[in-house]
Simulated scan of single mutants.
Amino acid sequence: MSSFGRRVLIQWVFMVVLLSLAENGISVDLHVEVTNALDGDFDLTVYCKNIDPTQHILHYSDSYQWDFSGNFSSTKPPFLCYFKWGELQVHTYNLVVPIWDFECKKHCQWFIREDGPCNKYYSTKLVCFPWN
């Protein structure tokens, strides 16, 4: 099985566990940062409606950050975000899955690229993921 397939399978298993824990919720303290790393002269619009009702426009290399403290809900994940640039590019990605994202327990830094969001997992290695 490919590494992508394993990650999807593991995320699915953890999401089942997360759903079973949803009654009590999972309490976390997070600092999530998003940086526009798109090639070219594209502005990036970021919208995470479950945590912040505001659309944020980021110029190249600009960042925006959220601080979150509270319970995660399986039905309303706070960091399920929408990303838009150019005319037709609209994507979604859940930036934090609390049971899966061990490296993002306190500070989670994302770099948004055309092919998908990238995160500095394992300290220094930049790992990119496909869009949902």
Results as ranks from 00 to 15, higher is better:
L44G: 02
L44F: 01
L44H: 04
T45E: 07
V46I: 12
V46E: 09
Y47C: 01
Y47F: 12
Y47G: 00
Y47L: 07
K49W: 04
K49C: 05
I51H: 01
D52S: 12
D52V: 09
D52E: 10
P53T: 05
P53N: 03
P53L: 03
P53Y: 02
T54W: 14
H56W: 03
I57W: 10
I57D: 06
H59R: 15
H59D: 14
H59L: 12
Y60V: 10
Y60W: 11
D62T: 05
D62V: 04
D62P: 00
Y64N: 01
Q65N: 15
Q65S: 15
W66T: 03
D67W: 10
D67I: 07
D67M: 07
D67T: 10
D67N: 13
F68H: 01
F68T: 01
G70C: 03
G70R: 03
G70E: 02
G70K: 08
N71A: 15
F72M: 10
F72S: 09
F72H: 05
S73L: 05
S73G: 08
S73K: 13
S74T: 13
S74M: 11
S74P: 12
T75G: 14
T75S: 14
T75A: 13
T75C: 12
K76T: 14
K76H: 15
K76C: 08
K76L: 15
K76S: 15
K76F: 14
P77Y: 00
P77T: 03
P78H: 09
P78E: 05
F79I: 10
F79C: 12
L80N: 07
L80W: 05
L80Q: 03
C81V: 08
C81G: 03
C81W: 03
Y82V: 07
F83T: 08
F83S: 10
F83M: 10
F83Y: 14
K84Q: 12
W85L: 00
W85A: 01
G86H: 02
G86S: 00
G86E: 01
E87H: 04
L88N: 13
L88F: 13
L88M: 08
V90G: 07
V90C: 09
V90N: 12
V90H: 13
H91C: 14
H91A: 12
H91M: 14
H91R: 15
H91W: 11
H91G: 09
H91F: 14
H91S: 11
T92W: 09
T92A: 07
T92E: 10
T92H: 08
T92N: 07
Y93K: 09
Y93F: 15
Y93A: 09
N94G: 09
N94Y: 01
L95C: 04
V96D: 00
V97R: 14
V97D: 11
I99K: 08
I99F: 10
I99Q: 10
W100D: 04
D101V: 04
D101G: 02
D101T: 05
D101M: 05
F102L: 13
F102H: 14
E103L: 04
E103G: 09
E103K: 08
C104M: 12
K105W: 06
K106A: 13
H107M: 11
C108Q: 13
Q109P: 02
Q109W: 06
Q109R: 12
W110V: 00
F111P: 00
F111Y: 07
I112L: 11
R113H: 12
E114N: 02
D115P: 05
D115R: 15
D115T: 11
D115S: 14
G116L: 08
G116K: 12
G116F: 05
G116E: 11
P117A: 09
P117V: 02
